[in-house]
Write a protein that binds this DNA or RNA. Sequence first.
RNA 1: GGGGCGGUAGCCAAGUGGCUAAGGCAACGGAUUGCAAAUCCGUCACGCGAGGGUUCGACUCCCUCUCGCCCCUCCA
Length: 502
Amino acid sequence: MEIRFYNTLSNSTEVFQPVNSDCVRMYSCGPTVYDFAHIGNFRSFLFADLIRRTLEFFGYKVHHVMNITDVGHMTDDANADGGGEDKMQAAARRIKEDKKSGKVPEGAVGNPDDPYQIAQYYTDAFLSDARTLGVKVAFEYPDNILHATKNIDVMQEMIATLISNGHAYVGADGVVYYSVESFPAYGSLSGNTLDRLLTGAGGRISEENQSNKRHPADFMLWKPDKTHIMKWDSPWGAGYPGWHIECSCMARKRLGRDVIDIHTGGEDLIFPHHECEIAQTCGATGQDTFARFWMHARFLMVEGEKMSKSKGNFWTVRDVLEGRATGIKVHPAVLRLELIKSHYRANMNFTKKGLQDSAGIVRRLTDLRTRLEADSGGKAQPVDLSHPILKQFAEALADDLNVAGALGVIVPWAAESHSDAGVALGILNKVNDVLAVAPLASETATIDDGEASRIQALCTQMDDARTRKDWATADGIRKEIQAAGYDVKTSPQGTIAEKRLA
RNA sequence: GGGGCGGUAGCCAAGUGGCUAAGGCAACGGAUUGCAAAUCCGUCACGCGAGGGUUCGACUCCCUCUCGCCCCUCCA
């Protein structure tokens, strides 16, 4: 089946073919580890995971690599390409505050002034969130998730190459800059070509900050700075690398190719980050292509508004899962589905109602699995894409990851009665290889704090009351169970309480 | 000002030149129930942001306008 993806590079949907048929090589811009990742970050990471799972669904082997940005970049790069506060220092200050408030547990970060400990703390948190939400690459850490701080040498090699072949220079301020004028294709990804950047800058480019550069759009590759909290020796003085260089280097190093198949990230990374990555990699390799497909996920909104700390709708993954966003705990599968179910290239609105819709679908697919496993004795039959249901599901995915269309096939199918449970289970397994929501194999173990047996006891009491026709008591108990976050159902075997998923 | 993306029912969301505009949620009617929940049956867009144009025919192609989002400064 022909797979088509939207390529930001061409602003059109193209048929996907890997460079080498043995394996699809893809790279995803990962998190910075100065704070907990939020749901917007994870929309992007889950989008990458969806690409990977879809390609695997179609039989491709996929090598997926992601980075972790743990170099302490500056909060305010607009000023002198490295002004403002160091992000690690900001994180250290925040961790100290969070320890006082209990948001960060005492003892979690032994020494908040050690940037490596801060990075490790938030890296662990990210990996835990990613595994909870079923992001495959997170289970391949550290092999396929690379730290910038462990690859400074590769970055320095590429910078040296770029200097020697005329793509980079040392400015009057000692900073190594990439010369955008040396790379005629600069702007081809974003449409922000040099002439347009100049005419459209509208006074945003400050003269004094640009005097050391040959062109206002030249960007930093290495910043000598002895005062920086994280610094490394280099031929250009002790300092730290520019923001863009790590991805160029780590993608090439780990994927082992100058030209890779897919590069993903959030839409905000199109410019300047990915534009600069292309300039760096192509400048160093001499190739005219870095990634053949550039794919970007749109930002999400929260209840119709931009997510921002000041609006109080800025949710981390743990905020949502632990119920701080909506007032009720959310099952990871529900959050996963909610973040992947609308098209990655369309505006997505994250809402409580959306979560409840997703919970209904997760419940339906989970119930289907329970039924099918019982009816088939747990034996799934092998099913291939020639089966009508899987074929329609596959066609939707192959059409630029149309998850909503794919769900439009699967959800009604799940409600039908299935004459051959083994075949249906085979279909569900294939579907779940992509969606990963029924079940979601996750790291988080269910902690039984005695709640289950307490709820079960209430169910028994409710059955007793119903036998006595003591309706008032039965209704009271039902309300109590519901208040604990359960749906109450009546079955021939007695009252059943199911924990609400969102 | 420049570069992009998107606006389909109360909500989410497919369809992208031609049968009656998928599917889900919500809502409503019915079956069922002690009452509910769950389940099952049924109803639910003469319409696809607005206006023009092309066409035998447009939600689907073209133009104009409008609204929303992203980027041009760190940002998924």
